[in-house]
C-alpha cells in the first residue's frame, strides 16, 4: 500500500464519518432547521473529503476536474435546496426549536 492509498483511505473514512454524523443528526435533531444544519455537514465536508480521496486515485486530470465539478454542483444544489426548505418552513410559521 503506497502513501497515496493510505491517504485515500483516511480521507474516505473521514468523509464517511461526516456522513454518519450528518445522518444521525438528521434523524435525532429536534426541528427542520437543526436537521438541515446537520445535513449540510454531510453534503459539503463529507462529500468533499470523499471526492478528494477519490481524486488521489484518478488516472488523469480530466477525472479530477469532473470530481471537482460534481462537488461544486452538489454544493450549489444542496445550499440552494437548504435555503428553499428553510424559506418554506419560515413561511409556514415553523418556529426554531428552543430548549
Amino acid at each position: 500500500m503506497s502513501f497515496t492509498d493510505i491517504l485515500t483511505v483516511l480521507l474516505l473514512l473521514a468523509g464517511a464519518s461526516f456522513f454518519l454524523a450528518g445522518t444521525v443528526g438528521l434523524l435525532r435533531f429536534p426541528d427542520v432547521y437543526t436537521r438541515l444544519h446537520a445535513l449540510t455537514k454531510a453534503d459539503n465536508l463529507g462529500l468533499g473529503l470523499m471526492l478528494a480521496g477519490l481524486a488521489l486515485q484518478a488516472e488523469s486530470w480530466t477525472v479530477v476536474a469532473r470530481l471537482l465539478l460534481i462537488w461544486v454542483l452538489i454544493l450549489l444544489a444542496s445550499s440552494s435546496v437548504a435555503h428553499l426548505v428553510v424559506r418554506t418552513a419560515q413561511q409556514k410559521g415553523i418556529r426554531p426549536w428552543k430548549r
Binding site: 454542483l73 450549489l76 444544489a77 440552494s80 435555503h83 428553499l84 424559506r87
Partner: peptide, 15 residues
Amino acid sequence: PGAVLDMLSHLLVPL
C-alpha cells in the same frame, strides 16, 4: 421563485 432559485436556474440551465 425568489432570488436563490432564480440564480440556480440561471447557472444550471446552460450547464
